[in-house]
Measured scan of single mutants.
Amino acid sequence: MVIEDPKTNKLIEVEKLPDGTYKVTIYDKKTGEKKTITMSKKDLEKLLKAL
């Protein structure tokens, strides 16, 4: 799943891993910076609600 946040000009890509956690990659379209973090479903839901 890919989500675009027009306010921050970032793309957020979410991928479910076999162990039940989620790999979240955040791309900054302005700088080209890429950050990848792994989080639980509960933390991911908090992140998505904040957008």
Rank of each mutant, 00 (worst) to 15 (best):
M1K: 00
M1C: 15
M1V: 11
M1G: 14
M1N: 02
M1D: 09
V2D: 07
V2K: 01
V2Y: 00
V2T: 09
V2A: 03
I3T: 14
I3V: 09
D5F: 05
D5I: 03
D5A: 01
D5L: 02
D5P: 02
D5E: 02
P6T: 11
P6A: 04
K7C: 07
K7E: 15
K7S: 14
K7F: 12
K7Y: 15
K7T: 14
T8W: 05
T8V: 09
N9C: 15
N9D: 14
N9V: 10
K10M: 14
K10N: 15
L11G: 02
L11P: 06
I12D: 02
I12Q: 02
I12S: 02
I12Y: 13
I12P: 02
E13M: 09
E13C: 10
E13Q: 08
E13H: 08
V14G: 01
V14S: 06
E15A: 06
E15G: 11
E15R: 06
E15N: 08
K16T: 15
K16G: 13
K16F: 12
P18M: 07
D19Q: 04
T21R: 12
Y22E: 00
Y22Q: 01
Y22I: 04
Y22G: 03
K23I: 04
K23D: 06
K23C: 15
V24Q: 00
T25L: 06
T25W: 07
T25F: 04
T25E: 05
T25K: 07
I26K: 04
I26M: 13
I26N: 05
I26H: 10
Y27N: 05
Y27Q: 09
Y27A: 09
D28K: 00
D28L: 01
K29A: 10
K29T: 15
K29W: 10
K29C: 11
K30G: 15
K30M: 10
T31K: 05
T31I: 06
G32D: 12
G32Q: 11
G32S: 04
E33F: 08
E33M: 03
E33I: 10
K34G: 14
K34Q: 11
K35W: 04
K35F: 02
T36F: 07
T36K: 03
T36V: 14
I37N: 13
I37E: 13
T38H: 12
T38C: 06
M39A: 05
M39L: 09
M39G: 06
S40Y: 06
S40G: 06
S40K: 03
S40V: 14
K41L: 14
K42C: 13
D43S: 05
L44H: 01
L44A: 05
L44W: 13
E45N: 06
E45L: 02
E45I: 07
K46G: 13
K46A: 13
L47R: 00
L47D: 00
L47Y: 10
L48M: 05
L48K: 02
K49G: 14
K49A: 14
K49F: 05
K49R: 04
K49H: 12
K49L: 14
K49T: 15
K49V: 11
A50T: 13
L51R: 00
L51M: 10
